[in-house]
Structure formats: structure tokens, C-alpha cells
């Protein structure tokens, strides 16, 4: 199997797991880094290489089938992918990676790189910026966050 084969699937499943759109995820510039990192991390111990294979197999089933209904996809993820007991807990590790840049849950995690910390989506979710990066400028904290939507 080509290393990059599952990247599009990784992108799709990441979007479903995090609640950020695929483009938003690509926008962080971390998509390929995370994909490669996860591929590299799954090995002997949990989550294993096999966990990862089954994980993508399931993802294929969900995304490459005929059913595009978001609710249906969500139910599938809830049942098969999200539980910490599935695939060595891969789903929550992936969510944490996107949200915080950490590999590992909670206090067991640490950033896989400086850039991963800076690109953590938890800050976007909270309408702020990572502490110590992406500075918003003098006095910006005096008013609600900039929110420019259509």
C-alpha cells in the first residue's frame, strides 16, 4: 500500500471527528504532517499497525459508500470509530492531535512539534489564539474577538 493512499480518508475522518471542515484542517498546514505522524506512531503497542489498517478500512466503508448523509456518518463514527475501545483509542488521539498538537491524551500528551502547538484548533474553537503565538495586536483583548463572517 502506498504511504499516501489513505491521506484523503484521513482528511475526511479528521473533519468528522474534530468538527472542523476539511479545508479548515488543510488550512493549518498540518494535514500531511499529522497523517505521517499517525502512520509512524501506530506500531507494536496500542494503537497497532493492525488497528490503523482496520481503522482505515472502516473509514472507507463509511465515506466511500453511497450514503452521504451527515447524520448517518455521525452515527457510524459514534458506533464504530469514536469509542476509546475502538482501534486502540485512535480516534481520540487524532482529535487531541488536531486540537492541541499533542500526541497522547490529557496530561500524558505533549506537542509533537512547535508548529503543532501553534496550529492547535482548540484555540480557534475558543475564539482566541494559542498562548504565545499568532498574536492579535495591541488592545485586541479590549473588544470581542474579530468575527468576520459572510
Amino acid at each position: 500500500m502506498e504511504e499516501k493512499d489513505n491521506l484523503p480518508l484521513f482528511s475526511k475522518i479528521s473533519a468528522s471527528l474534530t468538527g472542523f471542515s476539511e479545508m479548515e484542517l488543510w488550512g493549518t498546514g498540518m494535514m500531511e504532517t499529522y497523517y505521517n505522524y499517525v502512520m509512524g506512531k501506530c506500531g507494536e503497542s496500542s494503537p497497532t499497525k493492525l488497528d490503523l489498517e482496520y481503522f482505515f478500512e472502516k473509514a472507507k466503508e463509511i465515506y466511500l459508500g453511497d450514503n452521504n448523509d451527515e447524520n448517518w456518518i455521525d452515527t457510524q463514527i459514534q458506533t464504530w470509530i469514536f469509542p476509546p475501545t475502538s482501534y486502540g483509542g485512535l480516534a481520540q488521539l487524532i482529535i487531541t492531535l488536531w486540537y492541541t498538537g499533542n500526541w497522547g491524551l490529557g496530561f500524558n500528551g505533549s506537542p509533537i512539534s512547535a508548529q503543532a502547538y501553534v496550529q492547535g484548533l482548540i484555540w480557534n474553537a475558543g475564539e482566541t489564539h494559542p498562548s504565545g503565538a499568532k498574536q492579535p495586536g495591541f488592545g485586541s483583548w479590549n473588544i470581542p474577538p474579530i468575527n468576520i463572517k459572510k
Binding site: 471527528l17 474534530t18 468538527g19 472542523f20 463514527i77 469514536f82 486540537y99 474553537a125 475558543g126
Partner: peptide, 14 residues
Amino acid sequence: FGKKLREEMNYIIT
């Protein structure tokens, strides 16, 4: 997880 997670994070962090 997903959109609900994002909404919850927004709710609690802000």
C-alpha cells in the same frame, strides 16, 4: 466529537 465537540469547546472556553 465532531461539530458537537467543537460547539462545546466554544461554549466552555469563551
